[in-house]
Amino acid sequence: MTFDWMKIPYALLTLFIVFNFGLLLTAFIAKIGARAGRRHGIPIWQNYIDLIKNYGQRSSITHGVMFYLGPVFRLTGGVGLLLFVPTIYGSEMFSNLSFAGDLILALYFVFFGTLGMALGAGESGHPHAAIGITRGLAQVTAAELPLALAVFAVALQYQTLSVTEIVAAQQGGMMNWTMFTNPLAVAAAMLAFLGSMMRPPFDVVLAPQEIPIGPPTEYHSAYLALMQTNRAIFPIAKIVIYMNLFFGGATSWPEFAVKVFLIYLFSAFVGVCFPRFRVEQSIRWFLIWAVPLGVLSILWV
């Protein structure tokens, strides 16, 4: 096998597009959320300002090696996830580095950043960080389950684990989308999606409030900037997977933008409507509402 070196600049291009799209999209969504709460909200370019500020901050300390590496792990996880999945269907240019592995790789690579982040936050020695991690990990075990079930149902349905092939199978009209061919799986996955977006009612992990708690408690300056970068890329990467699996993928960037926005909006919509769950509540919620859907979807295939 010979490696096509052109894949690298193409991948970087994808990364660049998604990064900017992510920055704008998250700000936009935040603004929608604020408006729903009758507040003015942040300007659309706020994320850029934050990033530049943080990258430029001078006070930089470290609590140790893992603390230092935590954000690197985190961002590697985000970037890797994005690049292991083809972004635009049918485009050689934006199929990224998906030759390295299939759907399973993407699903498991999600944890790469989570784990690294958890380790880094752990070394900061701040109990709030540790508490945030236990909450996050505890919640993710339940939240990932319906997704895993849904993914598996889809894989069974299309008899493949290759993302490209799954998207290919959904071409030719909306009615071919998994959303319509396997609605149960999609429903389960979308509930799981809520859990993974760190938005209400499942945002107890970060628990945004006056005193910051959660894994990033001790992070600041460039560390925080790295994590903010990830916050722009990672959700988009995840949504790309959803889009590819359930919503027919995207054949062009505009289609991509619309679909990603709508999927994102779904979590924002739920977020502004519901209050926050405690961890054990959210675990029960996933097990009671989302998991049965996933189970049904698998049995139904």
Partner: peptide, 27 residues
Amino acid sequence: FGYWNPIAIMIIVGVIFMTLFSWLLFV
């Protein structure tokens, strides 16, 4: 059903990781 390229994964993850790490080291 699927495919998997361990060496490629190792290289890709390694490269991304080292790039970001260098970037952080720099800033």
